[in-house]
Simulated scan of single mutants.
Amino acid sequence: MNCGFVALIGRPNVGKSTLMNHLLKQKISITSRKPQTTRHRILGINTTDAGQAIYMDTPGMHNSEKRALNRYLNRTAETTLLGVDVIVWLIDGLSWHEYDEVIFKKLEQAGLPVILAVNKVDKVADKEAILTFFNDAQHRFPFKHLVPISALKRTNLDQLEDLIMALLPERDLIYPEDQVTDRSERFLAAEIVREKLTRRLGDELPYALTVEIERYEEKPGITKIYAIIWVERLTQKNIVIGKDGDMLKKVGTDARMDIEKLLGQKVYLQLWVKVKKGWSDSERALQSLGFND
């Protein structure tokens, strides 16, 4: 069977996590409209009659490396290119951006087959413009394939899957047929809480915010989860809690409902908000909080 690793790369907020979720036909990666929602490398495993494609959702590649967290995100995205078989470079819109030139250089160094997938084509009125852009792209880099897609509406995703599978090497399956990710339910629960924070807080969201599961207890008929939301300043703590604790209650309700769907049973979720000054600019603090991809 064809089987191998597929890196999903691109700038922040182009739809990599949405693409992986729709390729898997289930939600593994959290999504939001905020850039850099994805902070960890997450495997999504899709096994079909044709073979096994192991997708690697990555943080978006970006210029800023001012803080330890930024440097961690870039390292995670770049090291994903090591040991994969196929690269899918996802972009949105029909124009190149400043950081794309850096990605071109990284692709040349990798020496792997690359598929260029242009996302959100449902928003492009002039279809001739897509052909013009593809012609320009082929002159810039020897892409194996160029595919217009809409991850959200599943436009051309079956075609993209077929092209990816054809480029994977023949080998035995790496993961069991029924496995869909390499991440634990504990990790996925923390990510769901962070997703709900991202969506509820919108523009008020503190960038330096993360979620740590302090205790995870599996009992008959119920799973009890105790999570800490870490911020860097007291003012950020007040934003997350909200007036009379209203924001934290809403986030907890949203997260609990999604975690119950994930686990298929009742969940008790307790959230606390705590301050850890400067955690996003400390390599040691990042490691202690699970940033160790």
Results as ranks from 00 to 15, higher is better:
Ala7Leu: 11
Leu8His: 08
Ile9Cys: 00
Gly10Met: 13
Asn13Glu: 07
Ser17Ile: 05
Leu24Val: 07
Lys25Met: 02
Ser29Tyr: 02
Thr31Arg: 13
Lys34Glu: 09
Gln36Cys: 05
Thr37Gln: 07
Arg39Ala: 04
His40Gly: 09
Ile45Leu: 10
Asn46Ile: 02
Gln52Val: 08
Met56Gln: 10
His62Leu: 14
His62Cys: 13
Ser64Asn: 11
Ser64Leu: 11
Glu65Tyr: 02
Lys66Pro: 00
Lys66Gln: 04
Asn70Gln: 15
Tyr72Thr: 01
Thr76Glu: 01
Glu78His: 14
Asp85Met: 07
Trp89Gln: 03
Leu94Asn: 03
Leu94Phe: 03
Glu98Cys: 09
Tyr99Leu: 11
Tyr99Ser: 06
Ile103Trp: 02
Ile103His: 06
Phe104Val: 01
Leu107Ser: 11
Glu108Val: 10
Leu112Cys: 10
Ile115Gln: 09
Ile115Leu: 10
Leu116Pro: 01
Lys120Pro: 06
Lys123Phe: 12
Ala125Cys: 03
Ala125Lys: 14
Ala129Gly: 10
Ala129His: 08
Ile130Pro: 09
Ile130Gly: 08
Leu131Lys: 15
Ala137Trp: 01
Pro142Gly: 00
Lys144Ala: 14
His145Met: 01
His145Ser: 01
Leu146Met: 02
Leu152Phe: 11
Lys153Asp: 12
Ala166Tyr: 09
Pro169Gly: 04
Thr181Trp: 06
Arg183Trp: 08
Leu188Ile: 12
Leu188Arg: 15
Glu191Ser: 12
Lys196Ala: 10
Lys196Glu: 13
Lys196Phe: 03
Arg199Leu: 15
Asp203Glu: 15
Glu204Pro: 04
Glu212Phe: 11
Ile213Leu: 04
Tyr216Asp: 03
Glu217Tyr: 07
Lys224Glu: 15
Ile225Ser: 09
Glu232Met: 02
Leu234Thr: 12
Val251Phe: 04
Gly252Ser: 04
Ala255Phe: 01
Arg256Ile: 07
Ile259Gln: 07
Lys261Glu: 08
Leu263Gln: 03
Leu263Tyr: 07
Gln265Cys: 12
Lys266Ser: 11
Val267Phe: 00
Val267His: 00
Leu271Gln: 00
Trp272Gly: 03
Lys274Trp: 04
Asp281Ile: 08
Arg284Glu: 14
Ser288Tyr: 14
Phe291Leu: 09
